[in-house]
Design a protein around this nucleic acid. Structure first.
Lengths: 185, 185
DNA sequence: GCATAAACGCAAATAATTTGCTTTTGCCAC
DNA sequence: GTGGCAAAAGCAAATTATTTGCGTTTATGC
C-alpha cells in the first residue's frame, strides 16, 4: 500500500495527497492522536474515506507518511565555527525537537508503520545532516569523526533515550558529542 | 487503559489475561500481524471482545503487553570469563534476537503503544542485564564501564540500526563493545 | 481528439468498536 | 460458612470504521 512517489506536480493525485496531508497535520494539531480517524481526515480533506484506504491502506501508514515529511530537515546545519561546535549545536537542537511531544509522536508514527521504508528515509535525513557537518569541518582542515561513528555515538543514544522513556538534556548531549569528537583524532 | 499488575495468581482476571496472552502469541505465530484482530483473539481465548477492549483499550496496547512479556530475559548473562567477553557474548545474542523478524516486531509493538510504560520496562530489563555483567566483572576485580555508557554506546546503536532499517552484524557489535570497554579504563 | 489506465466518488456490505445492562466472580466482614 | 460489595466478564444493540463493486472523472500517450 505504498504511496506513489512520481506524482505530477499539478495532477489530481498530487492535489489529493496534499489536501489529505494538510488535513492530518491540522487534526493532529487540534486534537488527541487517538481521536484522529480516517473518516475524519477524509471529511476535512474533502475526499471520501475509500480514497484514503486505497492509497495508504490504514491510518498508521498515512500518519507515517505525514510524519516523515515533517521530519525532513528544512535547513542546513548552522555554522558555529568548528566541527565540534557545529555538531554540538545541531545535536542539541535535534534532541530538543525530537524529545518534544510532537517530535516523539512523529518518531513513533514513522516506526509504527508496517514498512520500514519511512524509517529508513528518516535516518537518511539525519545522516545527510551529519555528513554535511563533517564535510564542512574537513574542508576547514579539521579532523572529524566518521559519519557512522556519529550516528552510533550521538544520534542513536539520543533517540534510544527518547523512545525508551528518558529525556536527554543538553549536558548529556554535549557529553556524547565530546566523546565522539575526542576519540576520533 | 493500563492493565492491572496485582492479579491474584488463581483469580479470574489472571486466567483471562493468561488465555488472552496465549491466544495472541499463537495467532502471531501462525498468521500475519496485519490480520490479527481483537475479535479473533477473543474467540481463540474464549472471551468476548468487549472484555479485551475494556481491559486493554485497543490492539496496540494488547500487543505491547504481550511483547514486553516476551522481551523479558529468561536467564542471566552467561559467564564467558571476563567482563569484555561477557558483554560481547551478551550483545551478540541480543543483537541477533532483536534483529530477527519476531524481535523487530516485538520492539515495534512495544514502541507503538500509547503509553511509554512498556518501553521503559523493556529498557529496564536490558539495563539490569548489563548491570549484572558489570557487577560480576567488578567482583572479579576488573574495571568495567558505567552501565549508562554501555547503554549509550552498545545497546542504543544496536537498537537504532534495527529500528531504522539496518541490521547490525557480529563484527559491528564487537566493535561497539571494544570501544566502550577500551575507553572506560 | 480519442483511447486507455489509473484514481476517485458513491453506496452497499462487512467487520470492528463502543456501550448499557445483567450476571458472575472473588474478596472481606461478620 | 453466609451475605454484601465491588470489580470484571458476558451479552446484545448501537455506532463507527473498513472493504468492495461499480460507475465516473482525470491525466496521459497516441
Amino acid at each position: 500500500m505504498a504511496v506513489k512517489e512520481n506524482l505530477r506536480p499539478g495532477g489530481r493525485s498530487a492535489r489529493v495527497q496534499a489536501s489529505v496531508h494538510k488535513a492530518v497535520r491540522e487534526l493532529l494539531a487540534e486534537m488527541n492522536r487517538a481521536e484522529v480517524t480516517i473518516p475524519l481526515i477524509a471529511a476535512k480533506a474533502g475526499v471520501t474515506p475509500s480514497t484514503i484506504y486505497r492509497r495508504w491502506g490504514d491510518l498508521q501508514e498515512l500518519l507515517a507518511d505525514v510524519a516523515v515529511e515533517r521530519l525532513r530537515p528544512d535547513m542546513q546545519p548552522i555554522d558555529a565555527g568548528s566541527g565540534k561546535a557545529d555538531l554540538e549545536a545541531w545535536a542539541d537542537q535535534y534532541a530538543e525537537e525530537m524529545s518534544s511531544g510532537p517530535g516523539r509522536e512523529m518518531i513513533r508514527d514513522v516506526l509504527a508503520a508496517q514498512t520500514g521504508e519511512n524509517a529508513c528515509k528518516c535516518a537518511e535525513y539525519t545522516r545527510q545532516q551529519i555528513a554535511f557537518i563533517a564535510d564542512r569541518a574537513r574542508a576547514r582542515g579539521e579532523i572529524f569523526p566518521d559519519v557512522d561513528a556519529v550516528m552510533d555515538q550521538v544520534v542513536a543514544p539520543i533517540i534510544y533515550r527518547i523512545l525508551f522513556g528518558d529525556v536527554p538534556d543538553s549536558a548529556r548531549v554535549r557529553d556524547l558529542v565530546a566523546r565522539v569528537v575526542n576519540t576520533s583524532g
